[in-house]
Design a protein around this nucleic acid. Structure first.
Lengths: 187, 187
DNA sequence: TCAGGAGCTGACCGAACGGTCAGATAACGT
DNA sequence: ACGTTATCTGACCGTTCGGTCAGCTCCTGA
């Protein structure tokens, strides 16, 4: 039922998804949905909480890794894998985050994203570098979040993963090479 | 008033934005909004129609340009400038397009995007190439659409434009070089 | 056998939604 | 001065929203 709710939140948006809508798709009544979850907001929080927890854990042990080329590449791989696993949750947080401000779990997620952003910003002084990073991360997130409905099985997921890691690494690693010189070139 | 409505549609989403909300921000009553626009849907269409018209015009005279390197670079520049001009409209169409299916102008916009996508796909056979293109276009669109609320004036718009054109061109031009050999290298 | 709790539901509530309508107000050409 | 028109509004309508509640059906342990 969390899965169904999450899919609806992605497709129609949290505000646009009614409890009746979720109940119909799940084969239950609206009252039954509200029996398992205290409110619509609690349902959203339960649906995205695992993804937010995982994001927080990922960043906590990766926050210092963005400064060298090798570690940055490892971070990119982990980040892509994270997006692959929590595509739907990421979609909700990224695309509807600002209209969902005030919901604790959503605010927590946005706080984590800000932490990540700031740790990059601190060592990327120029606009060009920041735009590069933004295109890489947002592009990767959006590709994973927007295209899979149609593909998913016609294109091997492993191929998508490999291609994404390659292009994001290409966009992100030169940033370190041209800015911080205290790391050895990767090849 | 179209501007106010458009901003609300971006922030809270079309479904989540009430006519009362728009009326309050515009300093009018809900009835007055419905006097100028026959319905909420007509208000959305009026708000995004110019952007959709412009997109259609851009693609119509650029659809054959994606096959050579120089023309592709010119297309990238025009595309970025388009996104810069119609940021809010693009935001609504990209992020809420699927939940707004059935509204004629929205469907028209999605048709144009599909045309663009197919003209690229036809000559980009591998998953890696398509992912590259997806990251480039989606990343550029998302950066322009998501970050400006905070920046806009602290960072010169010209810098953002130049950086975006550079990174998108870098991602997109190699695609033609490695696939179609009937064009001369640009440098 | 049966008391009791978990799961589920239909009926219902106040609020807010998009939209209609008659009428108030103000501006303008004659 | 006056009729016309454009602009605007409050009152109101039916519908749907998130949420509450009494009660129904099971399953289970003593």
């Amino acid at each position: 039922m969390l899965r169904i709710a999450l899919e609806q939140f992605c497709e129609i948006g949290y505000i646009g998804t009614s409890l009746q809508n979720i109940a119909d798709r799940a084969g239950y009544s609206k009252s039954s949905v509200l029996y398992h979850f205290a409110s619509k907001e609690a349902l959203l929080e339960a649906a995205i909480a695992p993804a937010v927890d995982q994001l927080d854990a990922l960043l906590t042990h990766s926050i210092n890794r963005v400064s060298s080329v090798e570690l940055r590449e490892a971070f990119v791989e982990e980040f892509i894998d994270y997006l692959l696993e929590y595509r739907l949750q990421a979609h909700v947080i990224i695309n509807q985050g600002q209209s969902l401000a005030g919901i604790p779990t959503v605010d927590r997620a946005r706080g984590s994203i800000d932490r990540l952003s700031e740790s990059f910003m601190a060592e990327l002084p120029t606009t060009a570098q920041r735009i590069r990073l933004g295109v890489a991360l947002a592009g990767a997130a959006y590709v994973l979040v927007a295209v899979p409905p149609m593909a998913e099985e016609v294109v091997p997921l492993a191929d998508i993963r490999a291609a994404l890691i390659a292009v994001v690494a290409e966009l992100v690693t030169p940033l370190a090479q041209q800015q911080s010189l205290n790391s050895t070139p990767s090849h």
